[in-house]
Amino acid sequence: MSVMTIYERAPIGAKIAFRNSVPRPSEEDADALDAWKKCNGTGWLVRCTPPRSNIIWSTTGAVTLLPGEFQIDLDAAIAARKTFPLDSDLSFEVVYRPVAGEVRVLQEYGAHSILLYLAANMADARRWVAESGHINIRLEEVCVEEICADAVEGRIA
């Protein structure tokens, strides 16, 4: 599916696979393998940025994925993120959707928020926030109604 479908239908906290049509190079060709890995992998959907424009500039919007696991160290997490513009020609697929009872730990940035951690439950989310020391945090529990609404409204990507 396209990155636009991910933007429109995938929930924050979903695990997303991304790929191009190039076959994986052999382990011996390290440079080609590194280039291939930039366009092929998985990551947690941590942010959807809407398109914006004004008189001077405009952006197409984007989705941001966090490869690997969630980290308490915000600087390391920021460095690891991959952002894909909504006109990306890569192919995307949802490989995991958050389940009821999981809790999104979101940090507020003005009108937008970014997922810092997907906790197994509320106690885990509170523990993570206490250990991390992050501020401007909002906890959002994934509820059955959200999952059902996604299915009924066709947002199951």
Rank of each mutant, 00 (worst) to 15 (best):
S2G: 14
S2F: 04
V3F: 02
A10V: 02
K15I: 13
K15M: 08
A17H: 07
A17D: 04
R24T: 13
P25C: 06
E27R: 09
E27T: 09
E27P: 00
E27N: 10
E28P: 01
D29P: 06
D29M: 08
A30V: 08
A30M: 10
D34F: 15
D34M: 15
A35S: 13
W36P: 03
K38N: 12
K38F: 01
N40F: 05
N40H: 09
G41F: 02
T42N: 08
G43F: 03
W44M: 13
V46T: 15
R47Q: 12
P51N: 05
P51R: 11
R52N: 09
N54W: 09
W57L: 11
W57Y: 07
W57P: 00
T59R: 11
T59L: 02
G61C: 07
G68L: 13
G68Q: 11
E69L: 04
F70T: 01
I72W: 00
D73F: 03
L74K: 12
A76M: 11
I78G: 00
I78R: 15
A79H: 10
A80D: 08
R81S: 05
R81Q: 14
K82F: 03
T83H: 05
T83A: 08
T83R: 14
P85H: 07
L86Q: 06
D87S: 10
S88M: 03
V94D: 00
V94T: 14
Y96A: 15
Y96V: 10
Y96T: 14
R97N: 11
P98A: 07
A100W: 04
A100F: 05
E102M: 14
R104Y: 02
Q107Y: 02
Y109P: 00
A111L: 12
I114E: 15
I114N: 00
L115R: 02
L116I: 05
Y117K: 03
L118T: 02
A119V: 04
N121E: 07
A123T: 07
A125C: 07
A125G: 06
R127N: 13
V129W: 01
V129I: 12
S132A: 12
S132C: 07
R138G: 05
R138W: 05
E141V: 09
V144N: 10
I147V: 09
A149M: 08
G154A: 06
